[in-house]
């Protein structure tokens, strides 16, 4: 009896703490959602109020009317789209090559690539900026996207995935008359779909949320992506009050939030792979 009581207390305690932290993690989003429909006077009222009164869409309208916000959405979509698509190709192609083709010293080549993960982005940022200036592709969304089109973690993940499938499948394809390239298109690429799904999500999140690269490499506001644009709009006080910033932040984070809520199982599985390698 005593033991049962203790267990009930323990479980309730755990629930209390877990729910408290869930609220802590979710509250900024919830608060923003309510706040985005308030006038700025109400949103900054102390003590905080919850029900928008009057309910207003001005914050959202201002995004469209006074700013390049729609352009930034399109830019971010293009930038992320390019990065996701090209990374699907580069990761599956080189993952397959490193996992199942013979080449002298291929593991050395692979480890050389992998070692790049240890170099902080700030070390290569300045030279890359200089190279881009000299090549004349600064302030160019496509030029910037190129820098992120061969993600090494993605290549690593695909290589591990193809290793886990075993080499017999690829050998069977070769014996069945497929040359190494055909074996890639008919066997490796279609079989890689689950892992490529995870890679797409990761690259999408990274590209959609990228800040440092776009901040340094993009110069004119009409080329900005959402994070740079929002930070720019905030620092220049384009909308005169804070309401549209909150509304814009919500819209800008909506794709990543939706994607994560729908596909969270994929993502969380991906972490297991990463954690076990480290």
């Amino acid at each position: 009896m005593n033991r049962k009581l203790f267990n009930i207390l323990k479980i309730s305690g755990i629930y209390l703490v877990l729910i408290f932290f869930a609220l802590v993690y979710l509250m900024p989003f919830i608060r923003s959602l309510f706040g985005s429909f308030m006038t700025w006077e109400q949103a900054s009222y102390f003590p905080p109020q919850w029900i928008p009164n009057p309910m207003t869409f001005t914050n959202y309208l201002k995004l469209v009317e006074i700013s390049l916000f729609p352009t930034w959405i399109i830019n971010t979509a293009i930038y992320s789209g390019i990065i996701v698509l090209v990374n699907i190709l580069t990761a599956s192609m080189s993952g397959y090559a490193f996992a199942s083709l013979n080449f002298p010293k291929k593991d050395l080549i692979f480890n050389t690539l992998l070692a790049l993960l240890m170099i902080p982005p700030f070390v290569t940022l300045i030279p890359n900026f200089i190279i881009y200036v000299k090549l004349g592709i600064i302030d160019n969304l496509f030029g910037l996207a190129i820098l992120s089109t061969a993600n090494i973690s993605s290549i690593f993940l695909m290589r591990q995935y193809y290793f886990s499938l075993g080499k017999e499948l690829f050998e069977a394809a070769r014996i069945d008359g497929a040359n190494p390239l055909k074996a890639f298109f008919y066997i490796a690429l279609p079989l890689g779909r689950p892992a490529l799904g995870a890679i797409s999500i990761y690259n999408f999140l990274a590209a959609w949320n990228a800040f440092l690269g776009p901040l340094v490499f993009l110069r004119s506001p009409e080329n900005y992506t959402l994070p740079v644009g929002l930070s720019f709009a905030f620092s220049r006080s384009i909308w005169s009050d804070y309401g549209p910033i909150i509304a814009g932040s919500l819209i800008a984070s909506a794709p990543t939030i939706l994607l994560f809520v729908v596909l969270n199982k994929y993502l969380i599985r991906g972490i297991v792979i990463r954690a076990s390698k480290g």
Partner: peptide, 8 residues
Amino acid sequence: FQNYALYP
């Protein structure tokens, strides 16, 4: 092959 290596 020993494990047949059928394309899944």
